[in-house]
Nucleic acid binder design. Structure first.
Lengths: 348, 348
DNA sequence: TTGTACGCGTTATCAT
DNA sequence: ATGATAACGCGTACAA
């Protein structure tokens, strides 16, 4: 019932374990006749090498660990795709795990990966993820994606969230919006905080002295819906008009926002213009199609893995020396101009 | 530079390797003082146990391998979510890999998982995936999702694709469609073939003697777009009217179809009614929202993993006996009635 | 309670 | 070309 081992194969082929190993690994110092017998025995016994044992003696796993908040959904799925494509090109396998936003789970996942991976690709966009750094095995090459986990990483790739927030505001102003609002992500997420900071700075610059309504969401469609409702209700009570432009911190929330606005009979973009963030696939199918800040999520994953591979090679070369902490790439989101913010009467 | 080992920890704490091991694994036969020193040394050295070595001696990895055609996209992503949720509830980790529709890659992935996982969850929806069975290590518990890979599996969960095709047709007929067409998935995918078979049987039954137009797509949005174009062009040439109802073999293609129809100025659903398959998240955001056959993709993953866990427990209990091949669950798709097929004048 | 020693499956070194 | 044999890092029976 236990799997066949190399020893079983060797016995079946009537050779030594050493020869069996050589034959199976395709070394050239083995007689053709022996190789034939070994391969035959191996397939007869359905032999599959034990990866654990192999990586033990070779000190190499050909596997990289990927730790994300979640391993599904449009956003993370796209990151994984980027990582997958790049990993495949290099013959690397993937051990992915989700932390579900819980530091303890993240720690558990990292420990479970110990000895099973040659490098770690981590995304932990939480303000308090410094704690993660404390438990990370410092001997493993580590690259972070959109995270702040201290100075332990050998490379990082992150998003200019602040700049994205600024761009969103500038675009809404361009489209003639005179009043602005923002639906933000959770306070525990530092990416969300950066977008909010960008919004506030740009909004205060463009519209000095004005008040900007804020709503705190949590990146879910439902919270976007609630956010729009909140603005709607506030306006109904105070009699103030709706904000002409809303910057929503991610596309999922923007979709919820769209739903609430439609229910309330508000015209988008003419009464209220909307800009999201991320450019997930759903954005172009929304009605109206959603203007958003494209992050190039696929590239985030792809380049993250490439950075990691660099770090891994550096690591195996410079044996024992202090490693320099690698480069930190920052990608700027790019505005995708669709109908949700295309106003009829932009200023001359 | 190499990671700290248990030996290092033991030396640092000035105890034997055995005591260090016991302390770290939380056994009770260890003095408090010793435990304290060991734990301190471990965290000082950033010790992380070597998973490979551990699984070698314990003959257990607490990890299950998941092999999917791809590990991203709305459909597979949702399967992974189901698997992830169920695995987490049982303290299992996931080693996921994508075969990219290539048998050789699937084989490579399975071999790479050898000795690293306690069980295998495989989805290989290709007509020729019997070949996969030949290389699968027969000692590992194996559960298949929507696959036909022979009789090696200890359990399987699959979709009643034929029945789904029938339901789609019946629904379109219900809505008063007098002519039908089908955009199918790739011929190499047996799920696609089953849906096509269901379509043909039901269509021939409901509309005896009628011709049904067919287009062969490949499950991508783009091929759905091409399919609609093909029907449009054919009608323009022959002067025949468009089919009143189209059953599209998956939602991604249906979305492409919708795009082409809109470009051509065809009204959906009144001129052409559409039914998709899968109910991916995007379906409800399409305009008009897409009628589709919901498969419960999340449950596919969740129940798949539960089946696998059962097989694994069975496996570790009945040591050496011939295992009975486990149950095969078949789930029936359920019609989700949205606007893309809601016609104004259904028959009395 | 603690330490010694063996074995897990594999590769690599060294004789032969 | 081939075969013993020593690692690799860890858990655990056994002895103390």
């Amino acid at each position: 019932m236990k799997g066949a081992t190399l020893k079983d194969v060797a016995r079946e082929a009537d050779v030594s374990i050493a020869s069996a190993s050589r034959a199976i690994n395709g070394l050239d110092n083995v007689a053709e006749e022996v190789r034939r017998r070994v391969l035959e025995a191996a397939s007869k016994l359905r032999y599959v090498p034990h990866g654990g044992a192999r990586s033990l003696v070779m000190a190499r796993t050909n596997t990289v660990g990927v730790l994300l908040p979640d391993i599904y959904g449009e956003f993370f799925s796209e990151i994984i795709r980027g990582v997958d494509v790049a990993a495949r090109a290099r013959g690397l396998h993937l051990l992915v795990s989700g932390s579900h936003g819980d530091i303890n789970e993240a720690v558990a996942a990292v420990r479970a990966m110990g000895g099973r991976v040659d490098g770690l690709l981590v995304m932990s966009p939480f303000v308090d993820s410094q704690d993660l750094a404390a438990v990370l095995p410092l001997n493993l090459p580590l690259v972070t994606i959109a995270s702040r986990i201290g100075k332990v990483e050998q490379g990082s790739i992150s998003i200019d969230n602040f700049g994205g927030g600024v761009k969103a505001v500038e675009h809404l102003i361009d489209q003639g919006c005179k009043t602005l609002a923002h639906i933000s992500g959770p306070p525990s997420n530092f990416e969300a905080q950066e977008r909010r900071r960008g919004f506030l700075e740009a909004a205060n610059t463009a519209l000095p002295g004005a008040e900007h309504r804020l709503f705190e969401g949590d990146f879910t469609e439902e919270s976007g819906y609630r956010g729009a409702k909140a603005f709607l209700n506030a306006c109904a009570q105070t009699g103030e008009p709706m904000p002409e432009g809303i910057f929503v911190a991610n596309d999922m929330m923007a979709v919820g926002c769209l739903l609430a606005l439609r229910e309330a009979g508000k015209a988008v973009p003419d009464e209220v213009a909307l800009v999201g963030f991320d450019d997930i696939p759903i954005a172009r199918f929304a009605s109206p199609p959603l203007s958003t800040l494209r992050v190039g999520v696929f590239d985030l994953g792809r380049r993250g893995l490439e950075l990691l591979v660099d770090a891994m090679e550096r690591d195996s070369l410079s044996d024992g020396e202090d490693r320099e902490s690698g480069e930190g790439i920052v990608v700027s989101p790019e505005l995708v101009f669709r109908d949700s913010s295309r106003r009829r009467a932009p200023p001359a």
